[in-house]
Simulated scan of single mutants.
Amino acid sequence: MLLLDSRKRLVKTRRFSEEVYIGDPFNVVRILNEKEVDEICVLDINASVEERRSDLGFIAELASECFMPLSYGGGIKSVADAAPIFAAGVEKVVLGRASSDSVTVRALADSYGSQAVAACIDCRRVDNHWRVAFDRGRTLTNTDPVTQAIAVEQAGAGEIILQNIDRDGAQNGYDAGLVSSVSEAVTVPVVALGGAGDLSHLAEGLRMGASAVASGSAFVFIGRLRAVLITYPSSQDVNELFKKSGAAS
């Protein structure tokens, strides 16, 4: 999971703040190409907050550098917003706030297929209850992530990215209760995000019921001082990861 700031730099956050610069997006994509990464998801984390349109030239150039499927999110509110992004070479769009609008989700799914539409559900615990949040966690709703997940699946989303704001950048593992409850509530793939710091955490996420696991910190930081080092497990490590999780590779 790669995060773009307003200047199109790649950053990594903690609890959706404390941004740390990790590199130029094109250089990082080239490194990940060499490491044979399965898929990349790039999120413009400020697009919705700043009400910016997507930079189609930038997206097209980024897509041309990717040897793997590219998902893109940030400020997408409609089919009209998504159409040029797909035309630029992106295979899947990621919806944040717009995922709460069932009409928009359905229109995108009808136009491009459910497999091309992912809903990112950001959530945090408030008074011991999970609440869905938008706008980089600034806007809290009264909706819980299980209810939101069911709603986006019914609207036509083909994938759910479940993001735990409280564990973002913490590198201490996923929240088992959150991942399990949402994964059990829907039939579409759930991608766990927020908390992974090493391969053992990724295996745990799969055992919790997630269909897939994602991370930023596990692939860009090394050591307790969080030195920036772009890395990715080898095919052998990935196969071992699936064995440990009990999932099929």
Rank of each mutant, 00 (worst) to 15 (best):
A203H: 04
R106M: 09
G96Y: 07
L56Q: 06
T139R: 13
V37Q: 02
E39G: 08
R167S: 04
V29P: 04
V11E: 05
N33D: 11
D101L: 10
V105A: 08
Y72H: 01
K8E: 01
I161G: 02
A185V: 05
V179F: 00
S17N: 15
M68H: 12
S111H: 08
L43H: 03
F86V: 08
I165Y: 06
Y72E: 01
S99V: 05
W130T: 04
L62P: 08
D38F: 13
N128T: 12
Q163F: 04
Q163V: 09
V179S: 01
V11C: 07
I222V: 14
P25T: 03
S180Y: 06
S183L: 01
A98Q: 10
S111F: 07
I121V: 14
I59F: 04
R7H: 13
S54K: 10
E65V: 14
I161W: 00
V42R: 01
A80N: 14
V103A: 15
V49A: 10
S78R: 06
V190P: 09
D198L: 00
R7W: 05
R131T: 12
A151F: 12
S54T: 14
A155V: 00
V49M: 13
R30E: 15
V132R: 05
G74K: 03
L4Q: 02
R14F: 12
V90E: 00
R138Q: 13
T187P: 00
D24A: 03
A88F: 05
K8P: 02
A83W: 02
A176Y: 03
I22N: 01
E61M: 14
N172L: 02
G96H: 10
R14A: 03
R125V: 11
V29A: 14
L32K: 00
